[in-house]
């Protein structure tokens, strides 16, 4: 069936939309599309950041496949993301749900949210000095209570503990925000559903597990994807706390990219890493959306 031509009113309405959209489109093109496409171009060149780029074709991408340093950053990035999710989500969900039911819940929420107001660098340095083996407060407290053997553990100086510390610092800094998301989602769950479950003899945990949690799934799913993106891009806490060490145990894609670009002045190669990271985030986001899709609960 041939498409009917829009009438005059509809055509005028469409024309009217264009000038309203134009500023946003120009800004999007200037600050999103142009840099993105330029990065793709730079990834195909050998560029020291100063002199004119030389065309390199796919050489940077070929080099990536042989780069064992890059391979290890992928592993570390995944470890950070998974470990972070395991710490962040139960914690944020717990605080979000529990503070909702407490008398001084809002006060506790404010306290948990407060670190978000700190800059990342400040928060990272705070943690770095808290666990400093010589002058750190954590070590002092451990020694004071007689746990000298624990106090002697160099939390940021051991490959086995450094990543955990970076994850804890990252989660501590941001958990308040995630808690608020979960709290908002939990508040949307109708009280009568919870009351009905309680009347049926469900414990608080059972109410959460079988009533509240399923109804928060859509929010959880979105937050999971957001965390995955944040985890894959992680940079600031690691560069400030460990600079990728010890023994490259916390070297992630973001910090490696930064060093390749700004320490070694290999901007073409760094752009290739950025392109791969972009592709990985795109693919993983799509996969996650598909895997976590469920029939949404209507209430």
């Amino acid at each position: 069936m041939p498409r009917s031509r829009p009438n005059l009113l509809e055509r005028q309405r469409r024309r009217l939309v264009v000038p309203f959209l134009l500023p946003a489109l120009v800004l999007y093109a200037l600050f999103m599309l142009y840099p993105a496409f330029t990065t793709f171009y730079v990834a195909l060149t050998k560029w020291d950041g100063v002199n004119a780029p030389e065309w390199a074709g796919a050489a940077n991408f070929t080099r990536l496949t042989e780069d064992s340093l890059f391979a290890s950053t992928i592993t570390n990035t995944i470890v950070f993301t998974v470990l972070g999710a395991l710490v962040l989500f139960p914690g944020a969900m717990f605080f979000g749900y529990v503070t909702q039911r407490m008398r001084l819940g809002r006060v506790y929420r404010f306290l948990i949210l407060a670190p978000v107001a700190l800059s990342v660098t400040t928060a990272a340095l705070l943690w770095k000095f808290l666990v400093d083996p010589n002058f750190g407060a954590v070590q002092s407290v451990l020694r004071a209570i007689g746990l000298d053997s624990l106090a002697s553990v160099e939390l940021l100086g051991r490959p086995s503990t450094a990543m955990l510390m970076v994850v804890l610092a990252t989660v501590w800094h941001g958990i308040g925000l995630w808690m608020m998301f979960f709290a908002a989602a939990a508040e949307r769950v109708p009280a009568e559903l919870k009351e009905a479950a309680t009347l049926d003899g469900a414990t608080s945990f059972q109410v959460f597990r079988h009533v509240v949690w399923p109804l928060m799934w859509e929010v959880t799913r979105t937050l999971l994807i957001l965390w995955m993106i944040q985890g894959l891009q992680t940079f600031a806490f690691i560069i400030a706390m460990t600079n990728g060490g010890p023994l490259r145990a916390t070297e992630v894609i973001g910090t490696y990219l930064y060093k390749v670009a700004f320490a070694s002045s290999e901007f073409g190669y760094a752009a290739a890493i950025a392109v791969v990271l972009f592709a990985a985030i795109l693919v993983l986001t799509l996969i996650s959306q598909r895997l976590t899709r469920r029939e949404s609960e209507q209430y």
Binding site: P35, A52, F262, F267, I281, T285, Q289
Partner: peptide, 23 residues
Amino acid sequence: ATAVATAVMLSLSACITSSDSGD
């Protein structure tokens, strides 16, 4: 998903300017 992933590119794009004119 594309919009979100595109944001990643900005991490590197700040260093790309017009200085590479080849003059």
